[in-house]
Design a protein around this nucleic acid. Structure first.
Length: 671
RNA sequence: GCUGCUGUAGCUCAGUGGUAGAGCGCACCCUUGGUAAGGGUGAGGCCGAGAGUUCAAUUCUCUCCAGCAGCACCA
């Protein structure tokens, strides 16, 4: 008698199955619906093929399209294999290498046969067609364990030099697997895969582009062609994705920033932003808004140095851990020759003192906290700063306003007692919520837990993580409505962190806000307060930001609103445009009155037709266009046209001003 | 930082081994027109930087810089 295997299911039930059974058998036993929907299985936490037998008692969770991230990963991996099979079917002699899943799809690196050019965009339609044939053929994907020598022989026999090279380096003792697609094609692969190609939706993928890539990422090696595709569970998801790409391109803040004359970037200061008057107007409105929020939240604003001696950064630990991202400046006077020209590369004496530009504000805030003696009665102390920081980011990471080398944070550090942590974090949750709602963002709150490499004992981490959990629970945000989720291993090396992920108008997410409880920096920089017992105690330091950085947040806002900023943020809130020059005087009067009422207004008295003016101001995304012709000048009215609407409304100038004043009020000041 | 692509007028882009072109924008003129482009004239360029090949390089080659798309990174 063989003993039955005990398979426990997510609902807590346990099923007993014959040895040799597979997850597919269990799915079938539960019901035909599930058997059909199942894509793969999670066995003791590891994603596996449905058809791979259990090796003993196990915990089983069946993966279906509802388990979106697992399912997508599987499907994309399968698309990659089908892609490779299709390319080889179309062009025998093509060598294949690797093909993983990516964030929105998959790619495969291949080497075209010597008889033809490298693959290009023109080849993609034919490959897609062949992939659909393979999917429709519903070829079973079958796992087999092979020996290393078997693999080497197979690849060498087929002239697959890259695969053979790789196989030779595989460890002898590990279980090596291949996957068959039907009986005529196979690739070596760790898996898992779907049961057959037919489980893929032939209408849910699209090949996007080709790019060059070197074998093993080394330019001394052969050059391969990387074929990129996007892959989804169904056609609807694919279309949504393609639509998102289109929308995103239209909303691109770099394009809108130029068109709306908000800012520019240029080589000489790459990664740093030149803000134009209109862009900086948005910044100033946001800054004024955030100051009101922080003042109201009991924060006190400070300003700290850009440059500090490297000794300070050594003590804070940044010079050791973060130096590669920091800009260092020798504390010297450049030598200038008689012509008044400095050397391009001034000599720096070996014993020169070095300063570094701050990559973050925290150490300086601790230094402010440390001035004088702080009593427990003074805590919590909340120090805020619109802190301008520089980080030398990897050059390939720079991206418009979203990733820059100079940025300004809406930063603050809260120094408090152990007992005050939960309440301070809860207050921050409420503050962040009020801000994000003012911009119409929904958001998810996530807790990033301890990483592998970290400071501090497990007991400290248990405590720190639990504090954040408790605070979120008290704020009532530890639920699905707030997308509450814990992310193991994602925390900072010194502390777990809460993260706020905004969802924008087209469904993309952006991490902006954060709060972290830090016990390391107060220790390193020896921050203390005097407790009720008259002894020195270590405060907890909470690092927090809501916008994250002004640059990035403005970039997100531009894309979120597709350039049509809410009136309170719009650089130009209204334009007064004349139809005929006879109404110039009246238009000037209207502009003056609007300005006096605090409206940001421009007059457009140019000798152009009204059609032209309407088009221009619409493209410039000015929210309100006030048109004045002979009639309006005589009657003291304006014809108001609101951006995005076709109809215009004629109303007395005074009423228009009252209305604009009202809708131009920032959300936190609106009654 | 890695891979691929790109760099020509303020913007979007053509083009060529013999030092350049369009549309939009800008300036001026005509036009005073009622809700998304009225017409004309004109100005504007060290063709990203450096080196090489060549009688001759914006064009070909190499190096560097920057941008774009991915990747890695984002304390």
């Amino acid at each position: 008698m063989t003993e039955l295997l005990k398979i426990s299911l997510p609902d807590g039930s346990v099923r007993e199955v014959e040895p040799g059974s597979t997850p597919a058998d269990v799915a079938a036993a539960i019901g035909p619906g599930l058997a059909k929907a199942a894509l793969a299985a999670r066995v003791d936490g590891e994603v596996r093929d449905l058809g791979r037998p259990f090796e003993g008692d196990a915990a089983l969770a069946l993966i279906t399209a509802r388990d979106e991230s697992d399912a997508l990963e599987l499907v994309r991996h399968d698309y990659a294999h089908v892609l490779a099979e299709a390319v080889q079917a179309l062009w025998p002699g093509t060598q294949i290498t690797f093909g993983p899943a990516t964030d929105d799809g998959f790619y495969y690196d291949v080497m075209a046969p010597a008889s033809r050019e490298p693959f290009g965009m023109d080849d993609l339609p034919a490959i897609e067609e062949k992939m659909r044939e393979i999917i429709k053929a519903d070829k079973p994907l079958r796992r087999e364990v092979w020996s290393r020598q078997q693999l080497i022989d197979k690849w060498e026999a087929e002239g697959e030099a890259f695969k053979a090279e790789w196989a030779k380096e595989l460890p002898e003792d590990e279980e090596l697997t291949v996957y068959w697609s039907g009986d005529d094609w196979l690739d070596m692969c760790r898996g898992p895969h779907l049961e057959s190609t037919g489980k893929l939706d032939p209408q849910a993928f699209k090949l996007m582009r080709t790019a060059g890539a070197y074998w093993r990422g080394d330019q001394r090696n052969a050059q391969l062609t990387r074929i990129y595709g996007t892959g989804w569970l169904n056609k609807k998801q694919l279309n949504q994705h393609l639509h998102r790409l289109e929308e995103a391109a239209k909303r691109d803040h770099r394009k809108l920033g130029r068109e709306m004359d908000l800012f520019h970037l240029q080589e000489e200061a790459h990664g740093s932003v030149f803000w134009h008057p209109k862009g900086y107007r948005i910044w100033r409105e946001l800054e004024a808004y955030m100051r009101r929020k922080m003042d109201g939240g009991g924060y006190r604003e400070i300003k700290t140095p850009q440059l500090m001696d490297v000794r300070q950064w050594t003590q804070s630990g940044h010079w050791g851990k973060y130096a590669e991202n920091m800009f260092a400046v020798p504390d010297i006077v450049p030598e200038v020759d008689d012509a008044g020209e400095a050397e391009a590369s001034p000599k720096v004496a070996a014993d020169a003192d070095w300063m570094a530009i701050k990559p973050m504000n925290c150490p300086a805030h601790v230094l402010v906290f440390k001035q004088g003696i702080t009593s427990y009665r003074d805590l919590p102390i909340r120090l805020g700063e619109m802190g301008c920081c520089h980080r030398n980011e990897p050059h390939g990471a720079l991206h418009g306003l979203m990733r820059v080398r100079q940025f300004t944070q809406d930063d603050a550090h809260i120094f408090c007692t152990e007992d005050q942590v939960v309440e301070e974090v809860r207050k921050f949750c409420a503050l962040a919520d009020s801000v994000y709602r003012d911009f119409g963002f929904s958001y998810h709150v996530k807790l990033a837990l301890r990483p592998e490499k970290r400071f501090g004992s497990d007991a400290d981490w248990d405590k720190a993580e639990q504090e954040l959990r408790d605070a979120v629970a008290e704020a009532g945000m530890d639920n699905d409505e707030y997308g509450w989720e814990e992310l193991p291993g994602e925390g900072a090396f010194y502390a777990p962190k809460l993260e706020w992920h905004l969802t924008d108008a087209i469904g993309r997410t952006w991490q902006v806000g954060t709060i972290q409880g830090d016990r390391v920096l107060p220790e390193r920089l020896d921050a203390t307060y005097v407790g009720e017992d008259g002894e020195k105690h270590r405060p907890v330091m909470l690092h927090r930001a809501i916008f994250g950085s002004y640059e990035r947040f403005i970039g997100i806002l531009i894309e979120h609103y597709a350039g049509r900023l809410p009136v309170w943020l719009a650089p130009v809130q209204a334009a007064v445009a004349t139809i005929v020059s006879d109404s110039d005087d009246y238009a000037k009067e209207a502009v003056a009155k609007l300005e006096a009422a605090g409206i940001r207004v421009e007059g457009d008295l140019r000798n152009e037709k009204i059609n032209y003016k309407v088009r221009e101001h619409s493209l410039a995304k000015v929210p309100h266009l006030l048109v004045v012709g002979k009639r309006e000048a005589e009657e003291g009215t304006v014809a108001m046209r609101t951006l995005g609407e076709k109809e215009q409304k004629v109303l007395p100038l005074d009423e228009a001003i009252a209305m604009l004043t009202q809708i131009a009020t920032p959300p936190d000041l609106a009654g």
